[in-house]
Design a protein around this nucleic acid. Structure first.
Length: 495
RNA sequence: GGGGCGUUAGCUCAGCAUGGUAGAGCACCGGCCUUUUAAGCCGAGGGUCAUAGGUUCAAAUCCUAUACGCCCCA
């Protein structure tokens, strides 16, 4: 671990050097200034500079504020760069044009300081747009040196732990997070435009439901009761459907007490949305339309590249059933084999697929799918016809009682979304919960809890509804070409 | 849980196979420098080589354990 503890001399010396400069500023009452206004962003300046009358016009002065990122002093003339959230611009300091005090402040300023620059625009010999400074001030002293200017910050651990440094130094990281929030905004826009209402449901739940996952447990002192951090908002959102809402969504955090990997963080962001008088097929259409909208909104094109693989969101997404997908990726199995419990078990043991926790054929088919198909689903693909046993909240199919009206959606081998026609038969839901409770008693700590209160809500009548959850972090990974979920979480969990 | 890789100056990295006084660039400090842009030139400072043991006359280097991180597998 390379976390700075300031116990060595070099770090101390660099900070002391800057503290001395801060003391000088304090003496002149010039430290930690506030009350600035009238500044303009670097991006705005670049736009304005297209007007030829602005260049070399000493009467047109602009104020820029931001962080000083580089500094080149050459005796009487100096160049430096200032960066704000919109970009950066070079400024020029002519020693003769500054008072002695002004130049002293400039000379004593360090890379990383927050500064104020006022000046007019001109172009250098190399045609770079530059602000000719007529005034300069140090607004906020930076007491610690920034990482190296050319290579930036590359220590993965410090990038995650001290994200602010990563954001200052690495344009790529900045752009990724900028895109992340554009994506979330585009998703919201999409549903708002369709007349969906954004709602909020509990993060702390007495009974964690809506997914098969291990929850985090916490405790309320005054009430002396244990509570769970939610693993999904699903059962509360469906209570709202019972209550009369017809189109709702929630974008928020879920918490799952599971392993940490490049695809999993204990807290992650999901959107769940529900619409009455719809089925799972409508949800697939919405998903396809939504992704096309978001990709175009954020990237401006429908063809993107993820880790070397081209992904075309413009063409129709593939739709295939779970069993068909197994046959597609495994030539040694026939359609009949998949439905034959002995043959499929035999195959799994040969392929080292762990099915010790599973007994029913549906569970084994699902395990087989996860192992041999899922990692190979590179292009955007819907998988349909999920076994009923692994879909305890989904409506049973009319023709085939062994499958649910459900789909999952994959890109680049990652599960991005899961949606289905909602199970609104309270008696069927009770049986499904009973099965889950039995699994839990049997030692499966990811199985669902029995939620009597939710059954009661269904007994009041939930209109036919379809719903879906989309993993926002994974979607952001795809759209920002990020290999790890930690690259799209501002502050990923670190030990 | 198993395996592989990594941790050296504030930052980016050499050095380690074959043990022998700790290196560079950036940053910082001093000097020179009027259109630079990874500015340049001269000079100076800055290290418990992740931690703890071990082997050895001698360990950043070899061995063991631990911590933290990254990747792969379960």
């Amino acid at each position: 671990m390379k976390i700075m503890e300031d116990k060595n001399n070099d770090s101390h010396r660099l900070i002391l050097e800057r503290r001395k400069k801060l003391d000088l500023l304090k003496e002149s009452g010039n430290n930690y200034l506030n009350d600035f206004s009238g500044n303009i962003s670097c991006e705005q300046i670049r736009k304005i500079s297209n007007d030829k009358n602005i260049i070399d016009n000493e009467k047109k002065k602009f104020v820029v504020m931001g962080r000083m990122m580089s500094k080149r002093i050459m005796g009487k003339s100096s160049f430096a760069n200032i960066k704000d959230s919109s970009g950066s611009i070079q400024f020029y300091v002519d020693k003769k044009k500054f008072t002695e005090d002004q130049f002293k402040i400039f000379k004593n300023s360090d890379i990383g300081d927050i500064i104020y620059v006022e000046g007019y625009l001109f172009k250098t010999k190399t045609n770079e747009l530059t602000l000719f400074a007529v005034d300069f001030n140090l607004v906020t002293k930076s007491l610690r040196p920034l990482p190296e200017k050319f290579h930036g910050l590359s220590d993965q651990e410090i990038k995650y732990r001290k994200r602010y440094l990563d954001l200052i130094c690495n344009k790529g990281s900045w752009d990724t997070f900028n895109d992340r929030f554009k994506i979330i905004k585009a998703v919201r826009n999409y549903f708002d435009n369709l007349g969906f209402i954004e709602v909020e449901t509990p993060m702390m739940q007495k009974i964690p439901g809506g997914a098969t996952a291990k929850p985090f447990i916490t405790h309320h002192n005054t009430l002396d009761m244990d509570l769970y951090m939610r693993i999904a908002p699903e059962l509360y959102l469906k209570r709202l459907i019972v209550g009369g809402f017809e189109k709702i969504y929630e974008i928020n955090r879920n918490f799952r007490n599971e392993g940490v990997s490049s695809k999993h963080n204990p807290e992650f962001t999901m959107i769940e949305f529900y619409q009455t008088y719809c089925n799972y097929s409508d949800m697939m259409n919405i998903t396809e339309d939504l992704l096309r909208y978001v990709v175009n909104k954020v990237k401006g094109v429908s063809l993107i590249n993820y880790q070397g693989q081209n992904l075309d969101f413009g063409k129709p997404f593939k739709r295939i059933t779970l069993k068909e997908s197994i046959l597609e990726f495994e030539n040694n199995l026939t359609k009949d084999d998949i439905d034959n419990i002995d043959k499929i078990k035999n195959y799994c043991s040969k392929e080292n697929i762990d099915i010790t926790k599973h007994s029913s054929i549906g569970e084994i088919q699902f395990a087989l799918f996860e192992k041999i198909v899922e990692p190979n689903l590179l292009d955007p693909t819907f998988i349909t016809e999920y076994p009923i046993e692994v879909s305890p909240l989904a409506r049973v199919n009319n023709e085939n009682p062994l499958i649910a009206d459900r789909f999952e959606f994959f890109i680049m081998g990652k599960e991005i979304a899961n949606g289905f026609s909602e199970l609104n038969d309270p008696d069927d839901q009770r049986k499904r919960f009973e099965n889950q409770a039995a699994l839990k008693d049997g030692g499966n700590d990811e199985a669902m809890y029995f939620d009597e209160d939710y059954i009661e809500a269904l007994e009041h009548g939930m209109p036919p509804t379809a719903g879906e959850g989309i993993g926002i972090d994974r979607l952001v990974m795809i759209l920002t070409d990020s290999p790890s979920i930690r690259d799209v979480l501002l502050f990923p969990l670190m030990r």
